[in-house]
Design a protein around this nucleic acid. Sequence first.
DNA 1: CAGTATCCTGGACGATACTG
DNA 2: CAGTATCGTCCAGGATACTG
Lengths: 109, 109
Amino acid sequence: MALLDLLGRRWALRVLWELRSGQGCRFRELQARCAEVSSSVLNDRLRELRAAGIIAAQPGSGYALTPEGVRLLTALEPLDGWAKRWARRTAVPRLTAGAPLHSDTPSPE
Amino acid sequence: MALLDLLGRRWALRVLWELRSGQGCRFRELQARCAEVSSSVLNDRLRELRAAGIIAAQPGSGYALTPEGVRLLTALEPLDGWAKRWARRTAVPRLTAGAPLHSDTPSPE
DNA sequence: CAGTATCCTGGACGATACTG
DNA sequence: CAGTATCGTCCAGGATACTG
């Protein structure tokens, strides 16, 4: 297992996506943005992402992407692009146009 | 759920990776290359990937990537690049140098 | 060989209650 | 508010036996 073991887990990409702005985000705020993921799971993800050096806990401003994390987001872009086209080709056209890359990911716009 | 629901599943990326050459590959051959994944699961993955239009079953030559599948592999490259550097930075240096992107993925060289 | 049908188990996730 | 501890459920995946 490797990268997908990390990013494939529920909420992992969503968390990254929520932090994409570069602004720090508090635990509760993050939780609210993630459709109320349970605190235990959110905490798991945060710990894993921190251990991976993708995000870091700021002193007083919550969590934010590390430089490494920013580069990860960048590396993800082509894939998201592909996913969007693919969603258009493949997916069922009903439901509000969702998030190609991940169900819980609002996806880059 | 979307793309990660597909690629995050066990063996999914590995199958794509095994088909990267563009050569068709038979069921049993694929199974052998994938450390003897169970036939039921392999079949599941193949069906899902076919449904997604990423691979296709050739008449007599097994499975192969579709053009769309080829583009997916391309979109995956930056991510794999990131994963490799990341593995070097983060990962435990023990064990045979594995596959950054996915445990079961030999990973591009 | 290609693919299907069952059964079983581990672990991811959700809910919740709790602590500092 | 931030995070931990516990518990129950559910399902993906592995094993295996089977069919065409």
